[in-house]
Each structure stands twice: as C-alpha cells, then as structure tokens.
Amino acid sequence: MSAGHAVRDTRRLVGRSLRHVLRSPDTIITTAVTPIAMLLLFVYVLGGAIDVGGAEYVTYLLPGILLITVASGVAYTAFRLFTDVSTGIVERFRSMAIARSALLWGHVVTSVVANLVSVVLVVLVALLMGFRSGAGVLAWLAVAGILVLFTLALTWLAVVPGLTATTVDGVSGFSYPLVFLPFVSSAFVPTESMPGPVRWFAEHQPVTSIVDALRALLTEQPVGSAGWTAVAWCLGLLVVAYVWAVRTYRRTVS
C-alpha cells in the first residue's frame, strides 16, 4: 500500500467525518458553550475577587479556557469513533483494501478542524467581553501551533476510549479529568496563591506551562522557557498517546 493511497484514502475519510460534523453542528456549539459559560462566570462573577496583578482578567483567563474547549471537544471524536466501531463500519473498512492508518487519521484530522472552529468561537466571545491582544502574526501563529499540537495529543488520547469503550458513557467519561486539570494550574489563578503541595503539582503539570506560554504570546511578554516546556509536553503527550492508540487499534481489531 503506497503512501499516495494512504493519503487519498485518508482524504476521503476526512471528508466523510467532516460531513458528520457539519450535519450535527451542535457538537461544535456544545463544545464551545461550556467554556463560554465558564468564561462568563469567572470574569463577571468571580473575577472581581481574583487578583492577577493588573491585567484584564478575561485576557488572563482565555488561554486556560481554550485548553478546556479542546479537552471537552475531543470527547466527540471518541464518540464518533466509538459509533464506527459499534456499528461495524470499522470492520467493513478493514475488510476492504484501504490503507490501515486512514480510518484513524480521518477522525484525527476532523477532530483538529472541529476543535479549532470551537476555539475560534470562544475567542470571538472573549473579544466581545473585552479581550484584547497586540500580538503580531508570528505570535498568533505560535498560539495556533501550540493549540494544534495540544489538540492532536488529546485527540490521539481520545482514540483509545473510542476504540475500547463498551458504552457511550464510558466514551465521554474519559474527558472529565482532562477538563478538570486546568483548574489545578495557572489557568484561573496564579499558582503563588496555592498551598505548598498543590502549588508544586500545579507548577509541574503540563497545563500550566502551556497556559503560561499562550498567555505570554498573547500579552506580548517574553515567553522564556515556558514555550519550550509547553511544546515538549505537547509533543511528549502526542507521542505517548499516538503509540498507545495505534497499539490499541491493532489489538482490538485483529
């Protein structure tokens, strides 16, 4: 099976699952609604009591909210894959002369596209709420790049429950801890305000470095080592999730 075939088959399957997303646009909107609600809640209800050192709280908060958007969005990817497995479509494709990797990549590419649309929706709402950034094109590209890497990593992670879950509840359940992780990071409040062990955890988990890097890029601050740490976390997570997903794919369907 040539690489050309693999790309062509993947393209067709991306077309298929993008059509799924377009026919249920509620998946994109639902993905964006919860983060937008959090944005409203934290900025207009709790924000007044949170001291982030001068900056507009909506600007401080946005990076973490974007990560939450992606973390909840990949649950739909797991769900779409689960549906394909449970309806026998995966078996049908596997009994055809289609590139092995095409089925998973079809879902993964669609996941990145759908999540980026949700992210853009959230950013638009943040703009209405007073978020402003003087970041240049390069900084915005860096923000997009980190978000794509993060989405890819979480999507490959979502492939595992998508393939192995036995119930719909099991599929969506996996994303809850991912959505929760930003709460114990610098996403909502500076880590300095947390007690010892919590602060240590917050400062050493991936969300904090990713949030710090995005925030620095958006507020035109020097990114420093947070940028490389963030990219390293995303890449590391991506590699682990990819290997796990591909191994699961081989094991569960052969």
Binding site: R23, G88, I89, M96, A97
Partner: peptide
C-alpha cells in the same frame, strides 16, 4: 491486501453510515 481487494463482507449488523 490482495484478499481484501477480492472480497466484500456484509456482517451480521448492517454496517452503514447513518449520518
């Protein structure tokens, strides 16, 4: 690969894309 190119499988449950 050659086998897959020669066959078609209709499984026990209609494997059609409902969307």
């Amino acid at each position: 690969e050659q086998v897959r190119g020669s066959i078609s499988l209709t499984g026990q449950f209609a494997a059609v894309d409902q969307v």
